[in-house]
Design a protein around this nucleic acid. Structure first.
Lengths: 223, 223
DNA sequence: GGGCGCTCTGAGGTTCCTCTGAGATTCGCG
DNA sequence: CGCGAATCTCAGAGGAACCTCAGAGCGCCC
């Protein structure tokens, strides 16, 4: 049972030597380290465990690092992410940050700087879990269903799950349709889909799960 | 009349040429830029205005950049800060981040990267940086609602939100109907709209939120 | 191959917001 | 007190934004 600690850290790194070095380094700083050797495995860990912070290498087999970041953000995972990259060109940096990474460090890096950046990331972050609060009920992200109310469990489809996850992870934030389309619906032009899925969620969970902010977008019903 | 915008930015930079360049750059990206030429002035701006983000140079007269960051954090200013530094050594970077800066960029920097880092900073902080004081309660501008009183949250429409935002950002100022019409209502000739929306706000928030200054206009209820 | 569930489209009905305008009320001043 | 001007109150028109839902397209599993 790892990954539910205040200083839990997910390291996604394919290079065995570097992975071992970083593991020792982070452990020595008091982090509880989980390790994944490729993007697929990293994705699985990140979606099923709770971490305080993630450190992800750009050059990964299976799923590329930046792509992994993008996928995690699309599923509402708000955990701060630091990307390790060998490439130091500006386009690479821009791409990583715009994908949703909080920070990046160029290899070869200095140990002190890496640790300082980790501290900076951790200093201001609230974590997410696989169970997200919905007020009366909660969303079990991994099982894709809503539990805990007076009625029985409510099964969600993949899209419904992703959308609700995003809202539940940021309860006070208003999302525009554009943002939701980018984050949840990969297809850039699916104008009505957002509305439809809000409708689906409301039909299943009650009209108040998601509130409309007229002219702006939607936000979570509770809080 | 600056500093109350969603994309308002405070730039603290002593080098005149660099300051002018950055000003143009940020303005071109849609930021509303306030400028300060030294740390003392920067501190004053940062404490009296509200900004979405601050960009601070390390090498400043009067108060050094990192010191400025530390002082702001000590006073509870949570605005995200990006530090520009000529020194690229690890110790410098560590010091800046540990002082409470969210990020730093080493000069000479690439424009695209600087802008990408700004976007990344703003994205992270959009959910906490938009609150205006109303006395007992406060206005969450982004979510368009009033929170914090004894009663539950009060939802506002777009116009109501803009109008109240203007008043709350300038609590002691008296606005004429003409000014309000120009600032809040696009249509140049909508004479009664101002009165109507003042009425709406009063109905939702109590008669005292906005005071009438007979023959002149309106001003905020508190202070 | 056929059935089933999921995703997204598009059209029609509904709600909400904005602003107008007219009557009621209050204010300032002689 | 009395009068004109300023302000308040509120019903409602018009239009934009939104909701609802049937159904087509797609992929998956048996």
């Amino acid at each position: 049972m790892t990954g539910d600690h205040d200083r839990s850290l997910l390291l996604v790194e394919d290079d065995a030597k570097l992975a071992a070095l970083l593991d020792r380094l982070f452990t020595g700083e008091g982090y509880t380290v989980d390790m994944a050797r490729d993007g697929q495995s990293g994705l699985h860990h990140a979606l099923t465990q709770r971490y305080a912070v993630m450190v992800i290498d750009r050059g990964l087999p299976a799923i590329e690092g930046v792509d992994l970041v993008r996928r995690l953000r699309a599923r509402g995972v708000a955990t701060p992410i630091l990307v390790l990259t060998a490439r130091g060109t500006t386009e690479d940096r821009v791409e990583g940050l715009d994908a949703g990474a909080e920070d990046y460090v160029v290899k070869p890096f200095e140990i002190d700087e890496l640790l300082a950046r980790l501290r900076a990331l951790l200093r201001r972050h609230t974590d997410t879990s696989t169970r997200l609060d919905l007020g009366e009920r909660y969303l079990d992200v991994a099982a894709r269903r809503v539990l805990g109310g007076t009625a029985g469990p409510i099964e969600l489809s993949g899209r419904e799950n992703e959308l609700l996850q995003l809202f539940a992870a940021h309860p006070s934030q208003v999302f525009t349709r554009d943002e939701l389309r980018r984050l949840v619906f990969q297809d850039a032009d699916s104008p009505g889909a957002v509305d439809t899925y809000v409708y689906y969620l409301r039909r299943k969970l009650g009209r108040d799960v998601i509130r409309t902010v007229h002219g702006l977008g939607y936000r979570m019903g509770s809080a």
